[in-house]
C-alpha cells in the first residue's frame, strides 16, 4: 500500500551526523532519566496491563502519524501526536508511548538516527508530552473543564508542543555547529508555526470525537480491575 501523496515534511527526525558527540550524549542521558521516571509512573498506574495497553496505543500513534489530509499543491499534512497522547492518557504514559514510536522509527524504519535517538525522543516524545499536558491543564483548569475550553486547550497544547519540538531541534543543531541560530531558528519556527496549526486542528478534532463517543476516557484512567471484562466496552 503506497500512500498517494508526499507528506509535508515535519523536519524533526534528526539523522545521524547532525549533532555533535556532546549534544547527542547529553540528550541520551536526559532521555534515559526522564524515561526511567515515566516507566515507573506508568507501571504504577497500569500495573500488568502496561505492556499490552501502551503497546497498542503506540501502534495507534504510529498509524495516526501515517494518516494525512490534503493541504495544497499535492502535498499533505499529518500529525506528531505527542500532545494528543498526553491529553488522552497522561504525560507519563505518553512519554513511554512516544519513546517506543520514535525508537522503532529509528531502529526499524531509519526515520531518525541512532546516536541522536536520545535527542529525537526528547524533542518529539518527552518535551511535547510535558509541555502539551501543562498547556492543556492550564487552559481546561481556567475554564473549569467545559467543552470549548477542552478543545481550545487541546489546540493550544498541540500547537505549542510542535513549536517546542522545533525550537529544541533548532537549538541542538545550532549548539552542534550544524546550523546557524540566525537561520535555523526563524526558518524552523516559521514552518512549524503553520504545521502546528494542522497538529492543533487534528488533535482538537480527535478530542472532540472522543468527547462525543467516550467522554469517560478523557482525564479518567481506564479501569482494568478484575471485575471489568473487556466485553463491556465493546460497542
Amino acid at each position: 500500500m503506497v500512500l498517494p501523496m508526499p507528506q509535508l515534511p515535519i523536519l524533526l527526525h534528526i539523522p545521524d551526523g547532525f549533532l555533535s558527540t556532546w549534544v547527542a550524549t547529553v540528550f541520551y542521558l536526559i532521555t534515559i532519566a526522564c524515561l526511567a521516571v515515566a516507566i515507573r509512573k506508568t507501571s504504577e498506574s497500569y500495573q500488568e496491563s502496561t505492556a499490552p495497553l501502551m503497546g497498542v496505543l503506540a501502534a495507534f500513534i504510529f498509524a495516526a502519524q501515517m494518516m494525512n489530509f490534503p493541504v495544497a499543491g499535492g502535498t499533505s499534512g499529518h500529525m506528531l501526536g505527542g500532545a494528543l497522547a498526553a491529553i488522552l492518557v497522561g504525560p507519563w504514559a505518553a512519554m513511554v508511548i512516544m519513546a517506543c514510536v520514535v525508537g522503532v522509527q529509528a531502529l526499524v524504519f531509519q526515520d531518525g538516527g541512532l546516536a541522536v535517538l536520545g535527542a529525537n525522543i526528547f524533542n518529539m516524545g518527552i518535551a511535547t508530552a510535558l509541555v502539551g499536558f501543562a498547556v492543556y491543564k492550564a487552559v481546561t483548569g481556567f475554564g473549569n473543564g467545559k467543552r470549548p475550553f477542552i478543545l481550545v486547550g487541546t489546540f493550544a497544547a498541540a500547537w505549542v508542543s510542535v513549536m517546542v519540538a522545533a525550537f529544541l531541534t533548532s537549538a541542538q543543531l545550532a549548539v552542534s555547529g550544524t546550523s546557524d541560530w540566525g537561520i535555523v531558528l526563524p526558518a524552523m519556527l516559521g514552518v512549524h508555526a503553520l504545521i502546528g496549526i494542522g497538529e492543533g486542528v487534528i488533535s482538537a478534532g480527535a478530542v472532540a470525537f472522543v468527547l462525543a463517543t467516550r467522554p469517560d476516557l478523557l482525564g479518567i484512567t481506564p479501569d482494568f480491575g478484575d471485575s471489568t471484562l473487556a466485553g463491556e466496552h465493546v460497542r
Binding site: L53, F60, G205, T213, R214
Partner: peptide, 22 residues
C-alpha cells in the same frame, strides 16, 4: 479537512483502546 482527519484519529484511538482492553 484537518478537522475531519482529527475525527478519524479520534475514532482510531477509541478503537485502539477498546482493542487493547480486549
Amino acid at each position: 479537512r484537518a478537522r475531519v482527519l482529527g475525527s478519524m484519529v479520534g475514532s482510531l484511538f477509541v478503537r485502539s483502546l477498546e482493542r487493547s482492553e480486549r
